[in-house]
Design a protein around this nucleic acid. Structure first.
Length: 725
DNA sequence: CTGGGGTCCT
DNA sequence: AGGACCC
């Protein structure tokens, strides 16, 4: 057969899929519990990313336009969710929590709100220990005698039935510690099943295997398959394992709820595909176990596009293969997307339809690769061998983006880039720097110096979406360039690094995009990609003592030279940059400036000398209509209006004004440190040389380079808004 | 008047 | 560099 041994593998694993209910809304509700009883929507630009169940009860839908949602639910409470930080943090927190329960960390994250768990080993271990769990002694999990007695004759059905009569079982969470675990009732299957069956008794449910049935329908050779399911013991064993998994899922859901106050929906099955689909059957705060015998009929009822992995394109291709080009009900001149949308409504195509009418050969012709066809063919029959991938603690990419109604010109693009890149660098610190050694005991640790980079992104990428676009909606254009090493200077402030990065890489890439870069932009995205993990990073993540790893590295360095050396290479380079940085400037503008000189090999000594005196920090402010010339030591302000918009009277960037304007609220207070020289300003616009011109922010004492000023002011504004809540 | 992220494959 | 997919 096409998949030797596949059917065996099919029922070998036990997979749990967890889905945090309306996640963004739950995060906000946990921050502000008062919102829990109100209809709540999370807004991103014009759309509701999600909403809570109170809102759904009033007709609000996910991904609905805000305007429409307000119509159907006038009292909808709307919270902006464009900044994903809080959601990312919460997601990571929950993931790390769940991860600790699962052996070998077989936990795969999908988006922010879903995880797949491969609990096969945990279940099989507990199945093997049934006798331990089910004898009366097991009610007392401390019984080590029982542990010694543990004989693995779980094959004996009688034993299991006896065990059931005992009432309570104990599910062990640790291979080594018999006390770690939870008690469960043998008499009750937690949560729901599909199909719904009150009388269902999984412990002894009679078997009729779904996939052997369906594969026979298709006239395939399933000898191996049938053989595998021949014995009674095997059939019953699968049900027992799923029964235990349902208890485990229940335990996990309750744990997450008690610890972090998030409700979770769960699906329990033998593959990722079926576990995920099963979880959608009963939704919020519920779990569903898919009875194996029902798998085929369960799948058959689903629309083809519901299969994870069959997206918009594939679904449409399959639909057309079955029905021809239907254009059912779509208005004249509709886009491809609209046609597909109407097709879906007027001509729903189910898994059953596809499975019955399209052979594997036919699928191979229709889809782009043979491999895709094979996978899909398996999915149609509930066969999915995709393993649960252990999600790494180090992301493969970090990206930040923003969309606009209209963004024109390099000037505006530069401002946007600086904002985005500042956030990007901040994210690099959060996601790629080793966790600080817990500040509880002995050492009153300094700040970043004890942290290490766990990975080094090699590439910076700029992506744009032009506004006009005739083609498919998603069309983006991107260009990449090597990421300069200086962004890894950990003590340098994000704004300063962002300014340099935008100047050195961002703007050049933008220019490289030609007309698109200059035209109207709908979306700007910046990303770091191409992560190169450091050995130290892996060690830190695995909880290994980092110093030992480095010590050991010297000794073992002879063997595998290649990758190790590369790692050492950049880590060493970063340390060197930081050493220079510390020596020269310690903190702030001066340090950044001197660092820039050192790295770029550019000397700007002249720039820092004014009137024959080296002032170190030189302030140059942008004049408004060339009328205002602030002097040395004068107080300056960045201001905002009532909406929090930073003052920008001439449209050329945030104003920095010398006196308080009555209608505007001061955001950042700046003080010039030297004579202001406007001729320097012109020079900067032209050449964009590493700039020593900057000011000291009295709010945080940080030196801020001119090009980073707006971003820095915005940072304080964001802080202030956070504190208002 | 279609978010702001992510993954992997080609 | 882009495209498909996921949330």
């Amino acid at each position: 057969m096409a998949w030797p041994g596949m059917e065996k593998y099919q029922n070998e694993r036990i997979i749990i899929h967890l889905d945090y209910d309306c996640f963004y809304a739950s995060v906000v509700e946990n921050e502000r519990p008062g919102l829990r009883s109100l209809p709540l929507g999370i807004q991103q630009k014009n759309i509701l990313a999600t909403c809570n169940y109170v809102a759904r009860a009033q007709g609000v839908k996910k991904l609905q336009l805000v305007s429409e949602a307000k119509k159907t639910c006038p009292n909808l409470v709307i919270v902006n969710g464009e900044d994903l930080s809080r959601f990312r943090d919460a997601s990571k927190k929950l993931w790390l929590y769940v991860r600790e329960f699962i052996w070998e960390y077989k936990v795969e994250r999908l988006g922010f709100d879903e995880v797949f768990l491969d609990v096969t080993q945990m279940i099989d271990f507990n199945i093997a220990n049934l006798n331990l769990a089910d004898f009366p002694a097991s009610v007392l999990p401390t019984c080590t005698l029982a542990s010694n007695l543990a004989c693995t004759n779980a094959d004996d059905d009688k034993l299991v039935e006896e065990a059931a009569d005992q009432g309570i079982g104990f599910f062990r969470l640790s291979l080594t510690d018999p006390k770690r675990g939870f008690s469960f009732s043998w008499g009750k299957l937690p949560g729901h099943t599909y199909p719904l069956n009150d009388a269902l008794d999984l412990r002894v449910l009679p078997e009729s295997d779904h996939s052997s049935q369906s594969l026979e329908d298709d006239g395939l050779d399933c000898k191996v398959h049938n053989d595998f399911h021949q014995t009674k013991h095997t059939k019953h064993r699968l049900h027992r394992r799923l029964f235990l998994a349902a208890h485990f899922a229940d335990f996990l859901r309750n744990s997450v709820k008690e610890t972090y106050n998030y409700t979770v929906s769960a699906g329990i099955s033998t593959t990722k595909l079926t576990a995920k689909l099963a979880g959608s059957v009963n939704k919020p705060d519920k779990q569903t176990l898919l009875i194996p015998a029902a798998t085929q009929s369960f799948l058959d009822g689903h629309e083809i596009g519901k299969i994870p992995g069959v997206g918009f394109k594939t679904a449409q291709v399959l639909r057309e293969e079955l029905l021809g080009v239907v254009q059912g009900g779509a208005p004249e001149g509709s886009s491809v997307a609209e046609v597909a949308f109407y097709d879906k409504l007027t001509h729903p195509v189910t898994i059953h339809d596809i499975r019955r009418k399209l052979t594997l050969d036919r699928l191979s012709q229709v889809l782009d690769s043979k491999e895709q066809a094979r996978k899909l063919y398996g999915w149609l029959h509930g066969v999915d061998t995709t393993p649960v991938a252990q999600t790494s603690l180090i992301p493969t990419q970090i990206s930040i983006e923003d969309t606009f109604r209209s963004l024109k010109g390099t000037k505006q693009a530069e401002q946007v880039l600086i904002q985005l890149v500042t956030k990007l660098i901040t994210r690099m610190h959060i996601d790629l720097l080793s966790p600080l050694p817990t500040p509880t005991t002995s050492t009153p640790t300094p700040t970043t110096s004890l942290q290490r980079w766990l990975a080094c992104p090699r590439t910076f990428r700029l992506s744009l979406r032009p506004r006009d676009m005739t083609g498919p909606y998603s069309a983006r254009i991107s260009k990449s360039a090597p990421l300069p090493r200086y962004v890894f200077a950990r003590d340098s402030c994000a704004e300063a690094l962002a300014g340099r990065l935008v100047r050195d890489v961002g703007l050049p890439l933008l220019r490289k995009m030609g007309k698109v870069g200059e035209g109207e932009l709908q979306l700007v995205n910046v990303a770091v990609v191409n992560m190169e993990e450091s050995k130290a990073g892996e060690a830190v993540m695995a909880g290994v003592d980092i110093e030992k790893v480095f010590a050991g590295k010297k000794v073992t360095a002879e063997g595998s030279r290649n990758k190790n050396d590369e790692d050492m290479d950049w880590e060493k380079e970063v340390r060197e940059i930081e050493r220079v940085y510390k020596m020269l400037g310690e903190k702030g503008v001066e340090g950044d400036h001197k660092l820039a000189e050192e790295i770029d090999g550019i000397s700007n000594e002249e720039d820092t000398i004014v009137d024959g005196q080296n002032l170190g920090i030189v302030g140059v402010m942008k004049p408004i209509d060339n009328q205002i010339e602030p002097g040395i030591g004068e107080d300056l302000w960045v201001k905002a209006d009532d909406n929090g918009e930073l003052s920008d009277m001439d449209g050329n960037g945030t104003d920095i004004v010398p006196a308080e304007a009555p209608t505007l609220r001061p955001i950042a207070h700046l003080r010039t440190k030297s004579r202001l020289d406007f001729s320097e300003l012109e020079m900067e616009d032209e050449v964009g040389s590493p700039s020593a011109r900057g000011v000291v922010c009295p709010k945080c004492g940080m030196g801020v380079l001119l090009f980073a000023l707006e971003a820095h002011a915005r940072f304080h504004e964001m802080e202030r808004r956070e504190q208002e809540k």
